[in-house]
Design a protein around this nucleic acid. Structure first.
Length: 407
DNA sequence: TAAGTCCTCGTGGCCACAGTATCGC
DNA sequence: CGGCGATACTGTGGCCACGAGGACT
């Protein structure tokens, strides 16, 4: 999963290690990859700013974001003007480079004072408030969240801001660009009537959450029955209910794309009805906000000035299955279709949604979490015979360090 | 309280087995 | 078109050594 370091589960993930298939913060990247000579050889690169699950391989200067192959293809193949944009290849690195070295590798991203340790800096910069917002809105949302009082020119701030502000693919709700208070981590949506939505208030202050409680496993606790309830809904055909909740909310709010403006956007577009009567939908929304916020703004199609995640058909469904039921709304019929039209699509959509839900559930429940990194390091270097550990000195058929056989 | 001893647990890759899905008849 | 067997695929648990870490003296 993206955003949060796969290793410490606390810091924001920044780099991606293909060998470990892990997104890591700079601190853990150094720690993990300084463990032994083998891990030191792991090739790492920036994490894709869009899907946050793959290694970025190109940099789009115009959008000021790093993209993996898939997101680059998805984002740049939609039109000739976009596809003609210049893109810079992103270099990989190995070993344990210093902050200055990383800055030289990724000069377009890292603005780290030379001579300082990147890890220490990152750790120093992270405050709970900052992390909370990052958790809520992804790594791209650091602008204006300088609660810790640290100069926000550091690290990724420039990139992050541009992602939120300058990208042509940025969300435009009701033809109104999202603006952000430069001095507070609040998003304002001038296109809506009523008080401006304070996302931090909505999602976190009212919930009194700290960053640790934002682990995905804690959503059930947070929302009571929300996750399990929504899962049961899915399994028992209740995804229709979820659909209707969101579609209805869209209709109520008078926003044609309300239900489709997934993830974070749902929270404010539909905030009129969401919190009180739809635990499942709310949980879903927040989950999406945490896990796939960029996806929600990854648009190739636009309707009535409102941008939707433009994932088309099967590829996106498979690639972004983490969105679970929510992602269903991003495909198939526009969610503002009438209920009659809706039903004609629901059977196939439901089966797809259930399938993705099951995969997601499976992945979540069987996701292995290493409790003792030291033991993992040891196991990773232990010689084996047919997968089983062997005594030191005995014949082996697999040596993780040299990948050779003793016989 | 500190030091020493003992025991339990966790780690990853491979394999065997069971269960499920698909295909052809 | 449904039933049946064969085959392919998928998921799960167990095994192994050994050191970290906790319990106990």
């Amino acid at each position: 999963m993206g955003y949060i370091c796969d290793f410490c589960a606390q810091q924001r993930s920044i780099v991606y290690c293909r060998s470990d298939a892990a997104a890591l913060c700079l601190s853990c990247d150094r720690n993990v990859h300084s463990a032994n000579a083998l891990s030191r050889r792991h090739s790492r690169t920036l994490l894709c700013d869009r899907c946050h699950s793959q290694a970025a391989f190109v940099r789009c200067p115009e959008e000021n974001i790093s993209l993996c192959q898939n997101c680059d293809y998805m984002g740049h193949s939609s039109s000739a003007s976009i596809s003609s944009r210049k893109r810079q290849p992103i270099n990989c690195y190995s070993g344990c480079p210093t902050a200055a070295e990383l800055s030289s590798i990724w000069s377009f991203v890292l603005d780290l004072p030379s001579g300082s340790d990147a890890c220490e800096q990152e750790l120093g910069l992270m405050s709970i408030a900052e992390n909370s917002a990052v958790n809520a809105w992804g790594p791209n949302d650091k602008a204006g969240q300088n609660v810790s009082g640290v100069d926000e020119t550091n690290e990724f701030s420039s990139v992050d801001k541009s992602i939120w502000y300058g990208s042509s693919s940025m969300p435009h709700i009701m033809d109104q660009p999202i603006t952000m208070d430069a001095t507070s981590p609040k998003l304002h949506y001038p296109g809506r009537k009523g008080p401006e939505i304070d996302i931090e208030d909505d999602l976190y202050e009212s919930l009194n959450m700290d960053e640790d409680s934002l682990n995905i496993e804690n959503y059930e606790e947070l929302f009571g029955v929300s996750l399990s309830y929504s899962e049961e809904l899915l399994e028992n055909g209740g995804i229709d209910s979820l659909f209707r909740m969101k579609n209805l909310s869209a209709a109520k709010s008078g926003c044609p794309g309300g239900a489709a403006a997934e993830g974070a956007s749902v929270s404010f577009v539909n905030n009129v009805m969401q919190p009180a009567n739809s635990n499942a939908a709310s949980a879903d929304s927040v989950m999406s906000a945490k896990t796939e916020p960029v996806l929600c703004y990854n648009n190739k199609q636009e309707h009535s000035g409102l941008s939707f995640s433009g994932m088309t058909g099967e590829s996106s469904a498979g690639e972004h299955q983490d969105c679970g039921a929510s992602s269903m709304l991003l495909m198939g019929e526009p969610p503002w279709c009438s209920m009659a039209t809706e039903t004609s699509f629901q059977s196939s959509n439901r089966s797809d949604a259930v399938m993705r839900y099951k995969e997601k559930k499976k992945a979540r429940k069987f996701e292995k979490k290493v409790r003792y990194a030291s033991r993992k390091v040891r196991a990773d270097t232990r010689r084996r015979v047919k997968g089983r550990f062997v005594k030191a000195g005995e014949a082996y058929d697999y040596d993780p360090l040299s990948q050779t056989r003793s016989y």
